[in-house]
Simulated scan of single mutants.
Amino acid sequence: MSTTELSVSTPATAPGRRRGDLILFMAIAFGVSWACWGTAIGLGGPATPDSPTYLPFLLGAFGPLVGALVIRVRRTRRGEPVPEHAVRFRPAALLWAPLLMVAAAGTVLLAAVIGQAAGDTTLSWSDARGVMAGMGGPAAFLVSMAVSGPLSEEPGWRGTAYPRMRATMGRFQIALVLGVVWAVWHLPLFFVEGTVQNGLGLTTPGGVLFAAGNIPMAMLVTCAYERAGVLASIAVHFAVNTTMVLLSVQTPATQALITGCQLVLIAALLATGPRAAGSGTRVPAGGPAGAPARDGGSAAAGAL
């Protein structure tokens, strides 16, 4: 092969590698998670710490993280830089993450308060304490909520899948696609006793709203990722999950209100955040546009 041929054909391999990485990531994320959750379904019993079902249930949440680590190893072995659209870590993320976490939790709390005023649900601190006690106390509850969901998923969905999809898709397209993928990925949990999804039911209005709610939720954590990287997306994911569990949000009306409040927050973040029009514009995170993010101290943790 001549030098000219090599120079022409080499760039063309990037889209193929990107697609290959995405397919491999999805296969691992679904394979690991569904295998573990299938085991939990087979064992039966509630997904509580004192049940043998709990371990495979918990391990299933790590499918996206395992996929992300595999892709990171592959990328490192190929000597490739961090994907162009990965949002790098900046000290400002340490400020944005808690602010976005409070805002995300506020959408759930506001929806629950409106629902209570309308007679749909009743907020109870004693119920929240009961939830934490059932998980082994406040510390164990918070650790469980942080690990099973935010930490085990966001390095995969946002840190790995999002930057590669962003090379050819807009943020709204990605939110739609990842929202649907996310909903399908959660499907086995409807059959694991003791999960939020099982309590809702697969074919009930609550179950349908849970599935549909993955799309605005995907957009919300995407906005957080674009603003301050994986740390912020973890914070937002943690805030929404934890607040919903503590408030025992299950009624369709309150679920719909949460979606509405999230859409308002999304609109605010889009209006005040980085302008990233089009599929080819990189979203900066405190650095100059177009500065490549390569391996090293400047790369975001979880930008795989």
Rank of each mutant, 00 (worst) to 15 (best):
M1L: 14
T3E: 14
V8A: 14
A14F: 10
P15T: 14
G16D: 13
G16C: 11
L22Y: 08
L22G: 02
I23V: 14
L24P: 03
L24K: 05
F25A: 00
A27P: 00
I28A: 04
W34R: 03
C36H: 05
G38Y: 03
I41L: 06
P46G: 04
A47H: 05
T48W: 08
Y54P: 09
L58F: 11
F62E: 02
G63A: 01
G67R: 01
G67S: 05
I71E: 00
R75P: 05
T76I: 12
T76L: 13
R78C: 02
R90L: 12
R90M: 14
P91I: 06
A92C: 08
A92G: 11
A93R: 01
W96L: 15
M101L: 12
V102I: 15
A103E: 09
G106F: 03
A111I: 04
D120R: 10
T121L: 10
S126F: 07
S126K: 12
D127G: 14
G130P: 02
V131F: 10
A133S: 15
G137R: 07
G137Y: 07
S144N: 15
V147M: 14
L151P: 02
P155C: 06
G156M: 03
G156D: 03
R158Q: 13
T160Q: 02
T160M: 12
T160R: 08
T160N: 01
M169P: 09
F172L: 11
L176N: 08
V177P: 07
L178S: 06
V184F: 13
W185A: 07
L187I: 13
P188S: 05
F191G: 05
F191Y: 10
F191C: 01
F191R: 03
T195R: 05
T195E: 04
T203G: 14
T203P: 01
V208T: 11
G213C: 06
I215N: 04
V221E: 07
C223G: 10
Y225K: 03
E226D: 15
L231P: 06
L231Y: 05
N241W: 00
T243K: 01
T243A: 15
M244I: 13
V245A: 14
V249D: 08
A256G: 12
T259F: 12
T259N: 13
G260R: 08
L265N: 00
L270Y: 10
A271M: 13
A271W: 12
T272I: 15
G273W: 08
G280N: 05
G280L: 13
T281F: 04
R282Q: 11
R282Y: 02
V283W: 07
G287D: 09
P288L: 10
P292K: 11
A293Y: 06
R294Q: 13
D295K: 12
S298N: 09
G302P: 03
G302Q: 11
L304H: 13
